[in-house]
């Protein structure tokens, strides 16, 4: 394969990796917001007295829910979100490593290309 073609495919791959990375970072920020919101709810639930009835919004109606049930619900949600954050963090690291490698490859190809050009002209 010619150097130009290699450069083109490599830069396309690099761009794809960059957009993947942006996607993952986006997802990570969203998860962070969800985590803090759920933690706020958990803190609120911790202060409830038995007289406080808990309702859950299901579509347009408020459905009565046990305090204990609501608490475990939020707890599982928090666990799920933490798991997702770990997964996305791993993804980000992986993509970063991959894109770093691609960058090195790109620099290498470019250097080779320049050398080839100076040889043909010189």
């Amino acid at each position: 394969m010619s150097l130009e073609a290699r450069l083109q495919t490599a830069s396309a791959e690099y761009q794809k990796l960059q957009s993947d990375l942006a996607h993952s970072v986006d997802a990570r920020t969203r998860l962070d917001t969800q985590l803090s919101e759920n933690e706020m709810v958990k803190k609120e639930f911790a202060q409830l007295t038995p007289s406080n009835t808990v309702y859950k919004l299901v579509g347009p109606v408020l459905v009565h829910q046990d305090q204990a049930e609501a608490k475990t619900n939020v707890e599982t949600r928090l666990e799920f979100i933490r798991g997702e954050i770990k997964r996305v963090d791993g993804q980000i690291k992986e993509t970063e490593a991959k894109s770093d490698k691609k960058k090195d490859e790109l620099v290498e190809i470019q250097a080779a290309l320049q050398q080839a050009q100076s040889q043909t002209s010189g």
């Binding site: 609120e44 808990v54 859950k56 609501a70 949600r77």
Partner: peptide, 21 residues
């Protein structure tokens, strides 16, 4: 009063509790 505490949960609170919240 019933207070929206986020993520789709609502809690029935006394007035004093709601104001504190």
């Amino acid at each position: 009063v019933i207070v929206d505490v986020g993520t789709g949960y609502y809690v029935k609170k006394s007035r004093a509790q709601a104001i504190k919240y």
